[in-house]
Simulated assay, not measured.
Amino acid sequence: MGSPKVSIVVPVYNVEKYLRKCLDSLTSQSLRDIEIICVDDYSTDGSVNLLEGYAASDKRVRLVRHSVNRSVLQARRTGVALSRGEYIMFVDSDDSLELDACEEIYNLIKKCQADILHFDSNVIASIDVPDVNGIRDFIAPYVGNLKDQEILKSCFAEGKYRHTLWNKIYSADVCKKAHAHMVDGRCDIAEDFYAYFLIAFFARSYVGVAGKGYYNYSYGWACSRSWQV
């Protein structure tokens, strides 16, 4: 079996209520040549039963289970280490993708040959949360091309775009190198900041595109969910 075009890494912890919608959006992608790596971080609800069902019915779904709760950062690291795809994406387990997301994003990053492609997302306010426009601005891509040190500087020093992991697709080589350089141990806050800092450090090219939203971000759901046991 050849390598899939896209590996999607899904960290899972006690999200039984939302998980089916997430997985349905991934297994129904118009691009079939993908793998979906679900890393369960020692859930105590029915998440594992759901994951086992999807893995049994779709060979592209791979279930990995942590024997202790290790944090979302370490769950993603496990998924990245096991991934076989040409490119890597991250999807949080209470979010979803548009059904043509992988196909269109893959074609875009292949065309521009970037290490990072940053795309637009749809913000879905799941509870009464303030400043939805603010989060839209926060996750919006920088429309244009960045090279080498500009990638890190534009994000962390100049604020031209932000460090969220899930609204981007990455060259597997760069993503794997970055995650291999992370330290072991828990990280319960700012894990995206840490991970993307390393990805941006190793990346040599960034492209941001605006327009269609490919990722459906459930703003507010995570406010009531803790990754910690």
Score class of each variant (00 low, 15 high):
Leu31Glu: 05
Glu52Tyr: 11
Asp94Met: 06
Leu26Gln: 00
Ser83Phe: 06
Asp95Ala: 12
Ser30Cys: 07
Glu52Ser: 14
Leu50Met: 14
Asp45Asn: 10
Ala55Thr: 10
Ile34Glu: 01
Leu73Phe: 08
Val91Ser: 04
Gln29Ala: 03
Leu50Asp: 00
Val61Gln: 06
Val72Ser: 11
Arg65Trp: 00
Ser83Asp: 12
Ser30Asn: 11
Tyr54Pro: 08
Val91Tyr: 01
Leu51Met: 15
Ala81Gly: 00
Ile36Phe: 03
Ile34His: 04
Ser57Glu: 08
Leu31Asn: 02
Ala55Phe: 04
His66Ala: 02
Thr44Met: 05
Arg65Ile: 05
Ser30Trp: 12
Val48His: 03
His66Asp: 05
Val64Asp: 05
Ser96Pro: 00
Ile36Arg: 00
Asp92Ile: 02
Tyr42Ser: 15
Val80Lys: 01
Val48Arg: 15
Arg84Ala: 13
Asp58Cys: 11
Ser43Thr: 03
Arg77His: 03
His66Asn: 15
Phe90Asn: 11
Tyr87Asn: 09
Cys38Leu: 04
Ile88Trp: 05
Lys59Leu: 13
Asp95Lys: 06
Gly85Ser: 10
Ser71Ala: 04
Asn49Pro: 00
Ala56Cys: 07
Val64Thr: 10
Val80Thr: 04
Ser83Lys: 03
Val39His: 03
Glu86Ser: 10
Leu26Asn: 03
Arg70Leu: 06
Arg84Val: 05
Leu73Arg: 14
Leu63Asn: 14
Arg76Ile: 12
Val72Cys: 12
His66Trp: 07
Cys38Gln: 02
Asn49Met: 08
Gly46Met: 10
Val80Tyr: 01
Tyr54Thr: 06
Val72Gly: 01
Glu86His: 10
Ser43Ile: 00
Glu86Leu: 14
Leu50Phe: 09
Ser67Asp: 15
Glu52Gln: 15
Ser83His: 06
Asp41Ala: 13
Glu52Met: 13
Val61Phe: 07
Gly85Leu: 10
Thr27Lys: 09
Val61Ser: 01
Val68Trp: 04
Phe90Gln: 14
Gln74Gly: 00
Asp45Leu: 08
Leu97Lys: 02
Arg76Phe: 08
Ile88Lys: 01
Arg84Asp: 15
Ser93Lys: 01
Ser96Leu: 05
Ala81Cys: 02
Ser96Asn: 06
Thr27Tyr: 06
Ala81Thr: 01
Val72Met: 14
Glu35Asp: 14
Ser43Arg: 06
Val72Asp: 12
Thr78Glu: 15
Arg62Gly: 00
Asp95Val: 09
Val91Asn: 02
Val39Leu: 10
Lys59Glu: 13
Val61Cys: 01
Glu52Asn: 14
Phe90Ile: 15
Glu52Lys: 15
Gln74Lys: 07
Asp92Leu: 13
Leu51Ala: 12
Asp24Gln: 14
Asn49Cys: 03
Asp94Trp: 04
Val80Phe: 06
Gln74Ala: 03
Ser43Asn: 08
Asp24Gly: 08
Glu35Gln: 15
Glu86Ile: 07
Asp24Ser: 06
Ser43Tyr: 11
Thr44Ala: 04
Gln74Glu: 09
Phe90Arg: 07
Ala56Pro: 00
Leu63Val: 11
Asn49Ala: 06
Ala55Pro: 08
Ala56Glu: 14
Ala81Ile: 05
Tyr87Ser: 04
Ile88Tyr: 08
Ser96Trp: 03
Ser83Ala: 15
Val64Trp: 02
Gly46Leu: 09
Gly79Asn: 11
Val64Phe: 12
Met89Ile: 09
Lys59Trp: 07
Leu50Val: 12
Ala81His: 02
Ile37Gly: 00
Arg84Cys: 13
Val91Ile: 09
Leu23Met: 14
Ser96Glu: 13
Glu86Asn: 06
His66Gln: 09
